[in-house]
Amino acid sequence: MTIDYKTKGTCSSRMLIDVEDGVVKSLQVTGGCNGNLQGLSQLVAGMKVEDVIARLDGIKCGLKPTSCPDQLAQALKQSL
Score class of each variant (00 low, 15 high):
58 G>N: 10
61 C>H: 14
74 Q>F: 04
64 K>M: 11
34 N>P: 01
74 Q>E: 15
68 C>F: 03
47 M>V: 00
11 C>D: 15
45 A>C: 08
42 Q>G: 13
76 L>V: 09
48 K>T: 00
58 G>P: 11
6 K>S: 13
62 G>V: 10
43 L>D: 04
20 E>H: 12
33 C>I: 10
8 K>G: 03
79 S>H: 15
13 S>C: 02
10 T>D: 07
28 Q>R: 13
22 G>R: 07
21 D>G: 07
68 C>P: 11
69 P>Y: 06
27 L>D: 15
23 V>S: 02
78 Q>A: 15
80 L>R: 11
7 T>N: 05
63 L>D: 09
67 S>C: 14
33 C>R: 05
5 Y>D: 03
34 N>G: 13
42 Q>L: 14
80 L>W: 10
21 D>R: 15
8 K>I: 15
69 P>H: 10
73 A>F: 10
21 D>K: 15
59 I>R: 00
77 K>M: 14
54 A>T: 02
26 S>L: 03
26 S>I: 07
67 S>R: 09
49 V>N: 01
61 C>M: 06
70 D>L: 01
29 V>L: 10
70 D>F: 03
17 I>V: 15
60 K>S: 09
14 R>Q: 13
45 A>W: 02
74 Q>K: 15
76 L>F: 09
22 G>T: 09
69 P>C: 05
36 N>K: 11
38 Q>E: 14
19 V>R: 11
41 S>I: 03
63 L>P: 10
5 Y>E: 03
76 L>D: 02
60 K>D: 13
56 L>V: 01
77 K>A: 08
65 P>Y: 01
46 G>K: 00
78 Q>T: 03
10 T>H: 09
18 D>G: 01
6 K>H: 14
66 T>D: 03
62 G>E: 01
39 G>H: 05
67 S>Y: 00
75 A>E: 04
77 K>P: 08
41 S>K: 09
68 C>D: 13
26 S>Q: 11
56 L>Q: 08
20 E>R: 15
39 G>F: 00
53 I>G: 08
37 L>K: 01
63 L>N: 12
29 V>K: 08
70 D>H: 12
45 A>S: 15
53 I>M: 03
31 G>N: 06
10 T>V: 12
59 I>K: 00
9 G>I: 04
51 D>F: 00
65 P>I: 09
29 V>A: 03
25 K>F: 00
18 D>L: 05
63 L>I: 14
51 D>N: 11
49 V>C: 01
59 I>H: 00
77 K>T: 12
14 R>A: 02
42 Q>W: 12
71 Q>R: 14
27 L>Y: 14
10 T>P: 05
31 G>S: 06
38 Q>A: 09
69 P>R: 13
11 C>Y: 07
55 R>N: 14
63 L>A: 13
73 A>G: 07
72 L>C: 09
38 Q>F: 01
59 I>D: 02
37 L>N: 13
